[in-house]
Design a protein around this nucleic acid. Sequence first.
DNA 1: CATACTTTGTTATAATCTATAACAATTCTG
DNA 2: CAGAATTGTTATAGATTATAACAAAGTATG
Lengths: 227, 227
Amino acid sequence: MSTEKTRCKGIPLTVVKRLPGYQRLLSDLAAKEVERISSRELAAKMKINASQVRQDLSLFGSFGQQGYGYRVSYLLAEINKILGINTETKMVLVGAGHLGRAIANYHNFARRGFIIEALFDQNPQVIGKTINNLTVKDVRELGAYLTTAPAEIGIICTPAVVAQEIADLLVRHGVKGIWNFAPVSLKVPANVCVEHVHLGESLMILSFQLKQGEEASKIQKKLQNNC
Amino acid sequence: MSTEKTRCKGIPLTVVKRLPGYQRLLSDLAAKEVERISSRELAAKMKINASQVRQDLSLFGSFGQQGYGYRVSYLLAEINKILGINTETKMVLVGAGHLGRAIANYHNFARRGFIIEALFDQNPQVIGKTINNLTVKDVRELGAYLTTAPAEIGIICTPAVVAQEIADLLVRHGVKGIWNFAPVSLKVPANVCVEHVHLGESLMILSFQLKQGEEASKIQKKLQNNC
DNA sequence: CATACTTTGTTATAATCTATAACAATTCTG
DNA sequence: CAGAATTGTTATAGATTATAACAAAGTATG
């Protein structure tokens, strides 16, 4: 592929996408006070191959012991480290519209150490309001705020037209990761990470599946031609 | 891969993911009243290869003419058909919490023909409230409602614990696609499509990138060993 | 209206990426 | 201490994806 990457920081994206799965599984096991687990058992629960589990983990280090397997608590701790969970990550959110407010109220993030420290908006009618114990600040204060209280992640929930401008501002003030909900592809320096949530595209893909299901005739014809 | 599919309705997922891109590009061209475009020009704008454009499109039919290229208006219309855009798709939304309300207020969907026809919730304090001109109904009425007013897509914005139950109910009443925002993997019959939006995983992947960037030493060592 | 040019749709090929298998090395267990 | 178990890693096989190549068919032009 030209534009879309298949790797992320040197790790295959397919592996990265499995990491949250491992994390959840190990959390469950830890909660059940399971002490040890083998790659075979892990694989069974993840519905993948045992080799793959070992290969995935080996990309990050050696966490198991021959003849024994993996100590659940240790492996969980290591995966949490890899994912940056439980180490308090400070975030600021820009754009306190409907979506921004929804994100600000989502407590699951905070539970894992992702803390929204401040909210910003452009709209005078929104500025000053309190959302989930935070008062919405004027976006013009964003730069000054970040200077005194740096954040690692900036969440962009603004309209598409201003998203790039906000991204630039965030980057200029030391933000290292951007969680972007605006439907534009942001340009940022190489040392800054962007994770894009494509709601519109997601809906279109669902719609695509529906339409294809309806009139699958075309494709079936194509497939028949291949035989 | 074992669990994750690489194809969607017979079409490679990589292609499906490019479709919204083509759609947006062609919309822009149509707005600028551009009449024709070649695969080479399209490819340049999409930052991919011309062969790939032709191969992508050929999966759905023959939309161009040798020696001429593609008529923008026609190709756009065809891609809109493929994606199910502009053909009024009826949706119901279940779970009018923060996220549900944000979705209900997002007008970009309606602009493309995706209409939310009704909202449902379990919470008596939410039932009866008006959101974007729709009154939130009691979720216990969901089945009866769908019987009289069928919908193609159900949007699940409920807590994870009740998501499967709601999905079952939706499917039982004829919904063919589920847009799921709850952090669980739903089980549905083969003829029903699910598109999952993983907010939590998306944030974890961003966090992963940040942490890996910080202490990239490990990986760099690994890479050096490979040389 | 004939010729040169363009560009598609499709088949073939190359390149890349992903998953599986295999095994030496190491630790556990009785 | 011997035998069983299981890792980490390298090698291999299997898909998938992107690119190239080309015949077929239309366009443009004098």
